[in-house]
């Protein structure tokens, strides 16, 4: 996976977390993981479709998720209830949305899917043939990890169903031939 897809996400995460929660983030060391992802307490899953396709996971520890949700909503949340889930999912949505705008500025148009939440530690998520770049972010709220399993779309295969079939030139040009 190319680094040019990665930087928009790191930048977007940094900006959004700073704006929404006002916490500065430190980026840890990047790593490339080919195995399956073992989930953290809270995971937000968002897919990208378009010039760049793939899946982005945002993994949060429970404390981080609650801390961020509380800070976003200005209310002290002590459990991952519907409101907290919605807040964290929205955070993932905003970060990914912002990253996709940045990507489109560098010429890669993509659309993002609505977020899906996964609650529960220890599930295995496999992105199959997509290797994942793992970006750990540390803050005083707890750990947040961004997993990027993205690639440039294989247009021919992926969207073959949506392609226009070219009209045979002979059919249109010779209407008078048979009559």
């Amino acid at each position: 996976m190319k680094v040019q897809y990665l930087i928009p996400f790191v930048e977007a995460a940094y900006e959004v977390l700073k704006a929404e929660v006002n916490i500065p983030m430190q980026r840890g060391d990047l790593s490339l993981d080919k195995g399956a992802y073992i989930t953290d307490d809270v995971t937000v899953i968002i897919s990208l479709v378009g010039d760049i396709e793939g899946i982005v996971f945002y993994g949060f520890s429970n404390e981080a998720a609650l801390g961020i949700a509380s800070s976003m909503l200005g209310e002290n949340l002590s459990e991952m209830n519907g409101l907290a889930q919605s807040g964290i999912a929205e955070l993932g949505n905003v970060i990914t949305g912002r990253a996709s705008v940045k990507l489109s500025k560098s010429g890669f148009q993509s659309t993002i899917s609505p977020p899906t939440m996964l609650l529960g530690k220890g599930a295995t998520i496999s992105t199959l043939d997509f290797p994942r770049v793992v970006v750990p972010l540390t803050s005083n709220m707890g750990r947040i990890t961004i997993h990027l399993a993205l690639r440039e779309a294989l247009r021919q295969g992926a969207n073959a169903a949506l392609l226009k079939v070219p009209e045979a030139p002979g059919l249109k040009d010779t209407p008078g031939k048979d009559s």
Binding site: T39, G50, T124
Partner: peptide, 26 residues
């Protein structure tokens, strides 16, 4: 798409592990 709704699909993701909660929010 034949009914007039065009959509593209994302690559699949496989989740393994029983009893995990998956929420589609709203």
């Amino acid at each position: 798409s034949k009914e007039g709704f065009d959509a593209e699909i994302s690559p699949p993701t496989l989740v393994q592990g029983e009893g995990i909660q998956i929420s589609t929010l709203d």
